[in-house]
Amino acid sequence: MIDRQLVWSNPEVQAKLASFVLAADEVWSLQHRESPEARLFRQFAEEGHYGRRSQSLTRQGIYAVTPGGHFLGSWNTRYLPKVLEELDQALERWEQLDPQERLAGEALSVDWRWSDAYPEKGLALLVTTRDMPRDDLPETMRGEWRRTAWNQDRFWISEQELAGLRSDPKVQQSLAQRFVRVHGRDNARGQSPGYPRKAVQEARWTLVRIPADDDREVYRVQGYGAVEETGRWRINDRHDEPATHTRSFAGPMLGEIEFEGERCVRFELAWVGERQGATQYNGRADDPGPAPMGVVMTLAPAHDRVAPSMIGQYGWKRPSVEHAVPD
């Protein structure tokens, strides 16, 4: 998050970004998936800052390429002068190409991705996680960003699930289970895997209609979520060896959901509880708690079609793409 706030928010950077089309993507799948898009990434990434190193190591960073995938530049730093220099150099290389060269290369064929499963008639929700206030911040905590670190993800509800959300206890139970299993993970400061099903100790939502003005249909949603897992894993990036650890999160949930007819127009849910433990990449090795953390779920903006990072754990089926056509 610190990169996002410091670099992309800079006015000089933003002025230069106007010359580009901006894209964001998950690097692991680009490095390992078999698809035209991923193969193209691997080609130009080999010319970049992490090129020619072991394929098992990350290629994360910023890449400037032509629409055909020809390399223009790359970097992985948030040092502002370097970012500005790299943006200038990439644009210079682009300007040096003649118009035909700029658009050389074939358009990619369609490669179905989970973002294509966007629930048009369901619900797309934004999940935000951040530490709650506390007095006992560790002395070892480096930098201001860790105190206020936050992260976000998505939670999708299918059309069928939305239809049962207000009245079907089975649907409520199923959604609560999924929410607790996936979003009970502590990713406020980094990445952390979802919990296995067996780690869910309690997951429940109860919806009760409450009085509201005019024709609004407002529900109070109340619940509780608790997850706990013990196993062997690293807790400090690659600086420690796998050992036995426990991680957990538990606390009450409360919020409101509002409908206009069949359309959900407001979704506000807070899950505030106690987190404990650390995982390899979540930056908690020296701050494992127990400490308070908050998870909040709200409606995602209409244009936001980014898929939940752990949609693979939803049990949703991938559609056939036999009849997909290129753009």
Binding site: V21, L22, R59, P67, L72, Y281
Partner: peptide
């Protein structure tokens, strides 16, 4: 939201593509 979407938009707008790829 994806490299592919960026490349398609880049071709439509005749602009270079800046990809932010992270773990």
């Amino acid at each position: 939201p994806s490299l592919r979407a960026g490349l398609v938009a880049g071709r439509q707008q005749s602009k270079p593509v800046l990809l932010w790829a992270m773990n």
